[in-house]
Nucleic acid binder design. Structure first.
Lengths: 221, 221
DNA sequence: TAGATTGTTAATCGATTAACAATC
DNA sequence: TAGATTGTTAATCGATTAACAATC
């Protein structure tokens, strides 16, 4: 799939993940959908739906709409979750445990292939997904051993350490070859700009929500 | 604090939560900061920092910059986390358990005052934070009993049920008086527009991250 | 006062939307 | 063909940034 490089905005990618989730839901009842119906569920305009999708190609049929299965397949490919992407979990506290024990939370397309912690009491224990928690000191060797086979290669990490360890842990991961980090800590990582970081901060989201609640003004969409 | 209603964008509020997190970190070393330094950590421009802050008032000193403690206090107030906001957790699976056992995850300003589930095996058990898991059928009574005292009133819920139950559970909460929901499910809730919803979808964030990784283009800031 | 940095205006940039030709 | 809905262009709207007067 060819993407017009540098021309895709963060917003479009975010909406793409929303479209996918909605389409999977709607598919339970329907085979087809048009931009007007999809826009309604998304709380946006049909023009935006069509524009977003047309960023990646022509997937609709004029006069008819979109085939839902087709759209699901295409978005799945665009997001790279048509194949399994290996992920390691770094930090096996409450958050890390939730991730390794909750089979559904990562969704399709991702597989946890390693769990690391620095706590001697946790190292060696078997997590709910049957992986053994490894010493964070061995993460470099682990990643490098896996990197020569595209099926085992690891480029993504979920960072679930305590805030205080976030920066140093992230730097170590980058040195070992990790190029994408889902940052579950509240620490704002400062890394080389070719490293992709997406932040996932529950307390920040709660703060946002609270702001809108107490100010009782409608969020712009 | 007076806000110019309807004139605050979602982006500004999101950045406000980031400023707060960064300022708390920087405060460990410094007392003051200027818009240039703050912008550098935020990966944005000093103009944006000043514009964002000036949305809410004049907090800086010309020629000097901002007093960090002062800024922290102000943002804390704007986000309404200078007081305790009561929250209930609905759904006590892996995600709900993580939330009720991880003391830090909600951050300051929020307090879990109730945990609800519909699973008979969970109801009556004591969670890690010493609250007893209650039958979801009692949530309406619980919320209504609390609502006449501003210290006990509950307006926020964290929705951590399985996707299939999300819509129906959310509708119930709204009927009981909940006006703000942090939605941890992948289901796109459809509720009255005066109900505030913030989505927190780990799989969606992973998908986003994966997109940027495989396309290796820089996200716009 | 001179130097520095804010707060704000105006210019720019980018994202959303309306409108419509293309076409199923 | 007539009706419907896409894909895309052009217009609009909103957010970001540059620039600078205000002022500490």
């Amino acid at each position: 799939m060819k993407l017009k490089k540098m021309e895709i905005s963060e917003r479009v990618v975010q909406r793409l993940t929303e479209y996918l989730s909605i389409l999977k839901e709607v598919r339970k009842q329907y085979n087809e959908i048009n931009s007007i119906e999809l826009a309604k569920i998304m709380n946006t305009t049909s023009a935006q739906v069509r524009k977003d999708l047309s960023t990646f190609g022509e997937f609709g049929v004029r006069g008819k709409g979109y085939d839902i299965d087709n759209l699901i397949e295409i978005i799945t490919k665009i997001l790279g979750i048509d194949k399994i992407n290996n992920v390691i979990i770094v930090g096996h506290g409450k958050m890390g445990e939730m991730l390794s024990s909750n089979l559904d939370v990562l969704g399709e397309g991702f597989k946890i292939v390693g769990i690391f912690d620095k706590d001697k009491n946790k190292i060696g224990k078997t997590a709910a997904n049957n992986l053994i928690v490894q010493d964070i000191q061995n993460v470099d060797e682990f990643i490098k051993n896996m990197k020569n086979n595209s099926d085992t290669r690891i480029e993504m990490a979920i960072l679930a350490v305590v805030k205080e360890q976030a920066q140093i842990a992230a730097e170590g991961l980058v040195k070992s070859g990790i190029s994408a980090i889902l940052n579950m800590t509240t620490y704002k990582l400062e890394l080389d700009k070719n490293i992709k970081v997406v932040d996932m901060d529950i307390s920040a989201k709660l703060q946002e929500l609270n702001f809108w609640r107490i100010n009782n003004i409608s969020e712009k969409i």
